[in-house]
Simulated scan of single mutants.
Amino acid sequence: MLGAGSWGTALAIQFARAGRATVLWGRNRAQVEALARERRNCRYLPNAGFPAGLTVTAALTDALDGVEDVLVVVPSHAFRQTLAAVAATGVALKGLAWATKGFELETGLLPHQVVEDVLSGDVPTGVLAGPTFAAEVAAGLPSAMTIASARADYARRLAESITTDTFRAYTSTDLIGVEVGAATKNVLAIGAGISDGLGFGANTRIALLTRGLAEMTRLGLALGARRDTFMGLAGMGDLVLTCTDDQSRNRRFGLALARGQRAEHALRDIGQVVEGYYGARSVHQVASRLNVGMPIVEQINRVLYEHVSPHDAVAALMRRPVMAELV
Rank of each mutant, 00 (worst) to 15 (best):
M1H: 11
A4G: 07
W7C: 04
A10Y: 05
A10K: 03
A12Y: 11
F15P: 02
A16M: 10
A21Y: 04
G26T: 03
G26L: 10
E33V: 06
A34K: 06
R39W: 01
R40L: 13
C42S: 14
L45K: 00
N47P: 03
A48R: 00
G49H: 00
P51W: 09
G53V: 00
L54R: 03
T55M: 07
T57D: 11
T61L: 10
A63Y: 02
D65V: 00
G66H: 09
L71T: 05
L71G: 05
V72L: 09
V73L: 05
V73D: 03
F79S: 07
Q81G: 15
L83Q: 08
V86G: 13
A87C: 02
A87H: 06
A87I: 00
T89E: 10
V91A: 14
K94V: 01
G95S: 14
K101V: 00
L109I: 00
Q113W: 09
D122A: 15
G126K: 01
V127C: 11
A129D: 05
P131S: 06
A138N: 07
A138W: 10
A138H: 07
A139S: 14
L141T: 06
L141M: 13
P142M: 11
S143H: 06
M145C: 15
S149D: 06
S149G: 06
A155S: 13
A159V: 01
E160K: 05
I162L: 11
T166F: 00
F167W: 00
R168N: 03
A169N: 02
A169V: 03
Y170A: 03
T171S: 03
L175W: 02
V178Y: 01
A182T: 01
T184F: 15
T184P: 06
N186P: 09
L188M: 14
A189T: 12
I194S: 14
D196V: 11
L198P: 01
G201T: 05
T204R: 08
R205Q: 14
L208D: 10
L209W: 02
A214S: 13
E215S: 10
R218I: 00
L221S: 04
R226H: 12
R227K: 13
M231F: 09
M231I: 01
L239S: 01
V240R: 06
T242W: 04
D245R: 09
D246Q: 14
S248V: 07
R249P: 14
R251Y: 15
L257H: 11
A258D: 12
E264A: 15
R268C: 09
R268I: 00
R268F: 04
I270H: 11
G271S: 10
V273H: 09
E275T: 01
E275Q: 06
E275I: 02
R281H: 08
R281P: 03
H284A: 09
Q285M: 12
G293D: 15
M294L: 13
P295F: 08
P295E: 10
P295W: 05
I296H: 07
I296C: 07
N301R: 10
N301A: 13
R302D: 14
R302G: 04
V303E: 11
V308D: 12
P310S: 04
H311Y: 06
A313T: 11
A316F: 00
L317G: 09
V322S: 12
V322T: 12
L326Y: 14
